[in-house]
Every structure is written in C-alpha cells, then in structure tokens.
Design a protein around this nucleic acid. Sequence first.
RNA 1: CGGGAAGC
Length: 235
Amino acid sequence: DAIANALLDAYAKCGQMDEAWRVSELTKKDSLKSSSSMIIGYVQHGQSLMALGIYNEILAKNIPVDKVVFLSVIKACSTLGILRHAKEIHDHIILSGIDLDTRIGSSIVDMYSKCGGLGEAANVLNRLSVKDAFCWGPMIAGYAKHGQWDRAMHCLVEMHQKGIKPNDSIYCSVLTACNRAGAVPEGLTLFNSMKGKDDTLPTIQHFTSIVDLLCRSGLMEEARQLLTGCQKFSD
RNA sequence: CGGGAAGC
C-alpha cells in the first residue's frame, strides 16, 4: 500500500496523470494521501482546475480534509490567481478548525498575495501566532510585485523587531522592489545592511540586482566599483 | 518519500 502511494506520487509528479489515476483505483484506503498527490501532480503540470476538481470530490464525499490536502489545494489556488477561490479555501480551513502552523499560514499568505489580495494576506500574516521567514516572504514578494516597496521595507523592519532573520530570498524580493521603483539610496542601504545586521552574504543574485538598479539610474561608476570589490563572481 | 517563499 505504501508502495502504491509512492508509485502514484511518482506518476503524478511526472505528469502521467492517467497512470496515476490507474494506481489510485488500487489505493482507495489512503484516499487523502493519494488525493493530495494527484492535486500536486495537476498543479505542477498546469492543470489546477483539475486539481480543484479532486478537492471537490473529497468534499462531496464528506471526508474530513487534512493539512496536506489543504496545502495542495492552496497551491492550486495560488497558481490560478482567483481571489474568490482563495477566500473560499480560506473559509474551509477556518471551518475545519485545524491550527494555522507556519507552513499552512505561509501558504495562505502566499495564496492571497498571488491572487492580488494584499490586504487579506496582511490580515492572515498579522493573525498568525507563530511566524517565520517563510510567512513574511510571500507578503514581501507581493508588495514587491505591486510596486509597494515602502511596505516591503517596513516588513523587514518588523521582522528585525521580532527577531526573525530575513534570508536570501527576502532580500532578493526587497531589492527588486527597490529596483522597480528606482529607489537607489534605499537599495544601497539595504544591500549594505545585509552583512552587518544578519551576516547574510550577498549572493550573485543580489549583486545582479543592485548593479542593475545602479545602472538603470545612470550610476555606472558606482556599479563598477561594487563589481571590482567582488571579483569572485566572474559573471 | 502525500506538504511551504523570491529573483533571473
């Protein structure tokens, strides 16, 4: 039975959904495990509507949904980007009474963020009792995408206040936010604060971003100096 | 070994 589920999961991840279906006929017992595998499979291969279909089947059978199924459905909604669906799933999660740990919580923030519901995302984030960098990440990325770099920066400040260390990806998001806004001083300050505050070493991606920002603003010389200070990256 | 984020 464990083998059947592993096989189904493998087929789903390879996008062989017809084969996955065939295996699922054999594993009715672990329907939640096989369902979440199917949902993830559809999502990863651009068929999120099919994924929602599986979720609806579970609902129709009145089977209690567990965390992992919710997580996979959340992912489906994130890729669809339809706010109405996102709210619906969020309601289901609240009604189900499962506790919002950082994994489910960060996924809900991500879902709202990707559906353009930045206000909803912020609400969810605020109400999480435990937040890690994975919860702030999608919020910051959402602000970045919508040109609200000041809010993205504010999130960083809040993270520091709460003692949560931002990671590479988060700095990357905020830097690209500055990039879009042409916010040179803010971008530079941020870039320099990476080492000092969090002893996070800037990766090649951060260098690319800050150099891009400087060049777009016509500050070729500053960009050149940054690069010569870091010959390690030949790109 | 059914589960979470960014840029390019």
